[in-house]
Simulated assay, not measured.
Amino acid sequence: MGRVRDLWWRKAKQPDGTMAKEKSTRYGKGKRYLAVWMDPSGDEVSRAFPRKIDAENHVALMEADRLRGSYVDPRAGKVSLREYAETRWLPQLVHVAESTRETYERHLRHRVYPAFGGREVGSVTRADAKSFVAKLNGDPGLSASTVHIAFATLRIVMQAAVDDEIITANPCSRVKLPRLGDRVIDPLPVEAVGDMADAITPRYRIAVFLGAGAGLRRGEALGLTIPRVAFAKRHLDIRMQAQKGKLVELKTKYSRRIVPVDDLVLEEIERHMKLYEPAPGDVLISNTWKTVAKPSAFNSAWSRAVKKVGLPEGTRFHDLRHFYASALIAAGVNPKAIQRRMGHASITETFDTYGHLFPDHEELGRGAIDLLLRSPG
């Protein structure tokens, strides 16, 4: 059974043989009351408190948790958040895409660790989580979506700590986040696409056409292999992506897809093949060392081209994908076909991203009911 000890007083045997309380060597130093209880393995565990009522409540809580089977050793939460994330959480992320892992690592380094890296996992409170959101939201350089992702990273780490029985509850639960505004895609102008193709490092020119002409993501463009280009059928078979200079399979069945392409894209692919040797594995785009291009090197080349062309700072390769989708919408392509070509998991994702680009006015569809109901039977 649990108990509470007074660390400032002890019972001592008196000369007459009786027992009496007297001051201990710790009298007036540190926390006075020691909560003592048994963990599920039968070992004695303790924690000091300044007030007796707090020690008694803690013993009661530990005993109740042990009986319910929800006991978590308070000492486990003393590991720092950085140490827990680096040694336990990140190594367990074998189920996520490399790009997702990189996103987590980036937000840990730039936002979570500066706030909580040196803190014990068990010391982080809901008030701390709320303050973290408020601080991020007050940074004019961060968008609401960035705040959401950064906080989601912290929340996932803390939930993993709950699952690993490091802490009893997630302090990030029920924390309100800034409202996300309606997402409005403003596609790149046609001239900008051509200018980027001319301005970027020549061996990466083809990537611009794969983004703007086939809607490929950066990793998909850098990982496209020559055998997956069906010149006769005029399509690309998207199965792999490049990550950190290596080829890996696409994670979801929705990302693995057949994308029809126009002659211009095929002509650019043929042109590229005549100028540059493929990387090992017949990867279409290679770097100067004849290996698979790394995202960091490609991003540097992309940023230089953006600056040279005069596009807004922060223009991304992903904006070429938006250009492609907007072109399909303008051409009247069926939304389900657009979903498949973009590799979206659902039509909801397609409409949430590009819904504002679809034609929507009061005259659209007018006359369809008259045509059906007024026509002779």
Results as ranks from 00 to 15, higher is better:
Gln14Phe: 05
Asp16Val: 03
Thr18Val: 04
Met19Gly: 03
Lys21Ser: 15
Lys23Ile: 00
Ser24Val: 11
Thr25Ala: 06
Arg26His: 07
Arg26Lys: 15
Arg32Leu: 00
Arg32Ile: 11
Tyr33Pro: 04
Val36Ser: 07
Trp37His: 00
Asp39Thr: 06
Asn57Trp: 01
His58Trp: 14
Ala64Gln: 05
Arg68Tyr: 10
Pro74Lys: 01
Ser80Cys: 05
Tyr84Ile: 13
Glu86Val: 14
Trp89Ser: 07
Leu93Gly: 01
Val94Ala: 13
Ser99Gly: 14
Ser99Cys: 10
Gly117Glu: 13
Val124Arg: 11
Ala129Gln: 04
Phe132Asp: 08
Ala134Gly: 00
Lys135Val: 00
Lys135Tyr: 02
Gly138Gln: 07
Leu142Lys: 05
Ala144Asn: 12
Ser145Gln: 12
Val147Leu: 04
Ile156Asn: 13
Ile156Arg: 14
Val162Cys: 12
Val162Ala: 11
Ile166Arg: 04
Ile167Glu: 10
Arg174Glu: 10
Leu177Gln: 12
Pro178Arg: 02
Asp182Ile: 02
Gly194Asp: 06
Ala214Gly: 13
Ala214Lys: 03
Gly215Met: 04
Thr225Gln: 15
Ile226Tyr: 06
Val229Glu: 08
Phe231His: 12
Leu247Cys: 12
Leu247Trp: 02
Tyr254Thr: 00
Leu266Asp: 01
Ile269Ala: 03
Glu270Lys: 03
Glu270Trp: 00
His272Tyr: 02
His272Ser: 03
Gly281Ala: 03
Trp289Met: 14
Ala293Trp: 05
Ala293Lys: 01
Ser296Phe: 10
Pro312Leu: 13
Pro312Ala: 15
Glu313Val: 02
Gly314Glu: 01
Arg316Leu: 12
Phe317Cys: 06
His318Val: 07
Leu320Glu: 05
Phe323Pro: 03
Ser326Asn: 07
Ala331Asp: 13
Gly332Ile: 01
Ala337Leu: 10
Ile338Phe: 04
Ala345Cys: 04
Phe351Leu: 15
Thr353Ser: 14
His356Val: 06
Leu357Gly: 11
Pro359His: 09
Asp360Asn: 07
Glu363Trp: 00
Arg366Val: 14
